[in-house]
């Protein structure tokens, strides 16, 4: 890596848990630990600070952190943070932020992030809405045959009522899912962006020894809700959704 002019940083871990990862990093560079007292930055030498980020590199950033998590607690960085070299990494980041980083690592010791997403199955949830709301059922009958200008106001009303029902069911079912899962978690971050048919998008901070119990709860939910929802369940992840530095301006 004689051409290396910059140092890419994936995350920060305990020095005694840091392991090199040959060829696993961005641009297929190796991952090396830069230790500082009890801490270590997980880094790769890269050729320039201007290299393009490819799909493969995004995946590798996540994979490097996933591998590091197997060996110990890790504080994940957002994609794309680069230092000039290992000296500046220590002098500008690991040293001045030492106490804070140690505190964060202790806070996340033995804990992992689990990501849960739940989506309504469109056909099933719309059928529910039609059956539950007589006005919607009637509007549907009235507009089914003709989607021309004569039914336009009715179709707008139909859609508006459907949207309201979906919103209500989303909020209600989101709370049900959160109630079932939150009690197994130390912390939870709920995505508030209203994605169509997404009932829940949330990250849970979970003690490692409770991951199996969380799996069981997820399995039960997925089974119960199978006719009307499907799930995405991801983890264990480094605590991406829960880390933060004070006075972070990012």
């Amino acid at each position: 890596m004689s051409a290396a002019t910059a140092l890419y940083l994936y995350g920060v871990t305990w020095a005694d848990a840091a392991r090199p990862q040959a060829g696993a990093g961005v641009h297929e560079e190796s991952v090396e630990a830069v230790p500082y007292r009890q801490l270590a930055g997980l880094t790769s030498a890269v050729e320039s600070t201007k290299v393009p980020a490819k799909r493969r590199d995004l995946l590798r950033h996540a994979e490097v952190l996933g591998t590091a998590l197997v060996h110990g607690t890790v504080l994940p960085l957002r994609f794309g943070v680069v230092f000039e070299n290992s000296t500046t990494l220590v002098e500008d980041f690991l040293s001045p932020r030492y106490a804070e980083l140690v505190q964060l690592l202790r806070k996340f010791e033995g804990r992992v992030e689990l990501s849960v997403k739940a989506y309504f199955r469109e056909e099933a949830i719309l059928a529910e809405v039609v059956h539950a709301n007589p006005r919607i059922a009637r509007l549907r009958e009235a507009t089914r045959a003709a989607s021309d200008t004569s039914t336009y106001p009715l179709r707008v009303e139909l859609g508006e009522r459907v949207a309201a029902e979906l919103q209500e069911r989303t909020l209600r079912d989101r709370q049900v899912l959160l109630d079932r899962l939150s009690r197994l978690a130390v912390d939870v971050q709920v995505d508030q962006e209203p994605i169509e048919h997404q009932v829940l998008g949330a990250s849970f901070l979970v003690d490692r020894e409770r991951v199996a119990a969380f799996d069981d709860a997820m399995n039960k939910l997925a089974q119960e809700q199978a006719p009307r929802m499907h799930f995405k369940y991801l983890g264990p992840l480094a605590p991406h959704s829960f880390v933060g530095l004070s006075a972070e301006a990012g």
């Binding site: 960085l77 794309g80 689990l114 990501s115």
Partner: peptide, 30 residues
Amino acid sequence: RAPSPSGLADVVELILDKGLVIDAYVRIAV
């Protein structure tokens, strides 16, 4: 449970929107 994000959307959400940010430092031109 999938151990790691396999789709681009999940990765983007995870590592472009979340995680520690160190404002003073260079970010790779994405």
